[in-house]
């Protein structure tokens, strides 16, 4: 009888282990898929940042300045008024 119980326990453990392993793999797959989705989103973010970096690069801003802000004047440093704490 003891032998049967032992065999049953071993069999039960093998089956349980297998079930747990299978469910773990499913979880791992889900994690993998989520990581892949995150990577895709990161890639997308990087591409958008690249576009943003290009669009707001000094070169582009100077082009826009020359195109739309032709009358913009640079104020000389000497024209700034120094304010003391009492003023």
């Amino acid at each position: 009888m003891k032998k049967y119980v032992l065999v049953f326990i071993i069999f039960f453990l093998v089956i349980t282990t297998s079930i747990i392993k299978n469910s773990t793999r499913e979880l791992e797959n889900k994690i993998f898929n989520s990581n892949e989705k995150i990577k895709i989103l990161i890639n997308r973010k990087e591409i958008i940042k690249l576009q943003n970096d290009y669009l707001r690069s000094p070169q582009r801003l100077f082009e826009f300045k020359n195109k739309f802000l032709d009358n913009l004047e640079v104020i000389e440093l000497s024209k700034f008024k120094h304010l003391s704490q009492n003023e």
Partner: peptide, 21 residues
């Protein structure tokens, strides 16, 4: 069914399909 479960669990992980670049 037990054999199937054991077989599935003993199988190595299949090659993942990377969709991110």
């Amino acid at each position: 069914y037990s054999t199937r479960i054991i077989y599935l669990s003993s199988k190595t992980f299949e090659k993942r399909i990377y969709i991110s670049n």
